[in-house]
């Protein structure tokens, strides 16, 4: 199907969202809570764009690009004045929430905001509550974290109380996906620490680099149905071995 984004005619498939199509066509829309690995959620409200349609009798409105399904003949403006104003407002609010986040500072600057016009949060952290960590942990981790509380007091956390309540497998997916660097971890030769918990490490049989935590590998094995013996090497060594085997077979 055809639609128009900022005056440019583009092609799209049923089931796609505006954001995907725009990105494919090199049109940039800021998006903080979106990641191709997880389902879209529409939490940050930064990817607002204005849409209208020839058949809508002049009606137009703002929607989130990450969640709005494309349709034939849709007319999208990604950067008109109204859109920029609303986005600037959202960024201003995020900057008040996380004044120390470099990511938010940089984005805000692009919208002409150096300093938030609102009252900054007392004792701010870097979490913008985009929810990516929770979604990725549900998808490839162990559903070990969740939002706790509601409204302005909402935080992301492992369950309360003792460590043995944590289901975290130390896979680091959450820390990797976090756009602001709020989730931190440490790792030395012996241990990896995340969410206040220490994990042992498993090393590659061949090259000896750390390939993960025992809990993590067990989880992968259970999920994929592959035997634990599959998880004894790092990806590179496994690929090298497979390539060698492949070479033996064909030549």
């Amino acid at each position: 199907m055809q639609l128009s984004i900022d005056g440019k005619s583009v092609t799209a498939q049923t089931g796609e969202y505006i954001l995907q199509v725009a990105q494919r066509n090199g049109i940039e829309i800021p998006a903080l809570c979106h990641h191709p690995a997880v389902e879209p959620s529409g939490a940050c409200r930064l990817c607002m764009v204005e849409i209208t349609h020839a058949d809508w009798g002049g009606w137009k409105g703002l929607v989130t690009a990450c969640l709005y399904p494309v349709q034939e003949g849709l007319i999208v403006s990604t950067a008109n004045e109204k859109v920029r104003k609303v986005r600037a407002g959202v960024l201003d609010l995020l900057l008040a929430r996380c004044p120390e986040s470099e990511l938010i500072q940089n984005l805000s600057r692009q919208y002409g905001i150096e300093k938030t016009s609102f009252i900054p949060r007392p004792e701010p952290d870097l979490c913008i509550l985009c929810g990516l960590c929770v979604r990725i942990c549900e998808k490839i981790g162990a559903s070990a974290i969740s939002t706790i509380g509601r409204g302005i007091d909402k935080i992301v956390s492992v369950p309360y109380e003792t460590e043995e309540n944590y289901a975290c497998i130390g896979c680091l997916a959450c820390a990797t996906i976090c756009p602001t660097g709020e989730i931190t971890f440490t790792q030395d030769e012996q241990t990896r620490s995340i969410w206040g918990r220490n994990f042992e490490l498993v090393y590659c049989e061949d090259c000896g680099i750390a390939i993960g935590t025992p809990e993590q590998l067990k989880h992968y094995s259970e999920r994929s149905g592959l035997d634990m013996s599959y998880f004894t090497k790092c990806d590179r060594c496994r690929n090298r071995e497979a390539a060698a085997r492949f070479a033996r077979i064909t030549f």
């Binding site: 549900e138 162990a142 559903s143 969740s146 939002t147 706790i148 509380g149 956390s157 369950p159 309540n165």
Partner: peptide, 17 residues
Amino acid sequence: PKAKVFGVATFYKAFSM
């Protein structure tokens, strides 16, 4: 998942921890 149970328990006002 335990995390979800805690998430739900702290979201609704009818519950207290």
